[in-house]
């Protein structure tokens, strides 16, 4: 089973409205802004968070990245008024991920992937290792579809190159590769949902 035409059409329609990443080290807050805007439009709630607001919530400091735990803690104080919450979990499985994608009351999930992800993106852009000899940045991807063969995802780095011109970007990878890269982060996922939802399949999942 592969990614369907319907999956791709949904993906293209959704990312068309996505915010672009203003700085190279703001992938987490850009991804969060995009999933918040997407669920906001779909669920008719009026989230008004700019990337700058989200940067403040996660104690963003230029070039030293972003703190996902702090983002979750502080964003939840804001989302409470709307009856929504951000969840940050580790140890989920692909069935959980699929359940989050398909649940209309949940945003698309933001999955953390191992720094080795950058070995896989040559067709989209050209990452180059730093002086340590390895990739060190733990990146995030917005997951749109997961099945037994492929994962359809959005990489916020696609939009940081100011002068990009209709370059075909990577948006799919094999399920096995995704699972490996995701597992190397302890299967970390962030998503936004209506408060109080607790039914996902994984025994480890606590909602």
């Amino acid at each position: 089973m592969t990614i369907t035409t319907e999956d791709v059409e949904t993906y293209e329609a959704k990312i068309d409205g996505f915010a672009t990443q203003p700085e190279e080290d703001q992938c987490l807050t850009t991804a969060t802004k995009n999933v918040l805007d997407e669920i906001s439009g779909r669920r008719d709630v009026d989230f008004q968070f700019s990337i700058s607001d989200l940067n403040d919530l996660c104690d963003y400091r230029p070039e030293t990245g972003q703190d996902s735990i702090l983002l979750q803690e502080n964003l939840n104080s804001e989302l409470e008024d709307y009856g929504y919450e951000m969840k940050l979990s580790r140890g989920l499985n692909e069935e959980d991920l699929r359940a989050i994608v398909k649940d209309d009351r949940r945003s698309y999930p933001i999955a953390s992937v191992s720094p080795r992800y950058f070995d896989e993106v040559e067709n989209s852009y050209k990452p180059r290792r730093g002086s340590s000899g390895d990739y060190q940045l733990q990146h995030v991807l917005i997951v749109f579809a997961v099945n037994s063969e492929k994962v359809l995802y959005y990489d916020t780095f696609h939009d940081i190159f100011e002068r990009r011109q209709n370059v075909e970007v990577e948006r799919e990878m094999s399920d096995n590769l995704f699972y490996q890269l995701w597992s190397e982060t302890g299967n970390e996922v962030l998503w936004v949902q209506k408060e109080g939802q607790r039914t996902l399949s994984s025994p480890e999942f606590e909602g």
Partner: peptide, 21 residues
């Protein structure tokens, strides 16, 4: 600390993302 930096060539627009460690 490793931070990504767009070091693309302005003329070639070659989309190079250099990690600065």
């Amino acid at each position: 600390n490793s931070t990504p930096k767009d070091v693309s060539d302005s003329r070639d627009k070659d989309r190079v993302l250099q990690f600065i460690d």
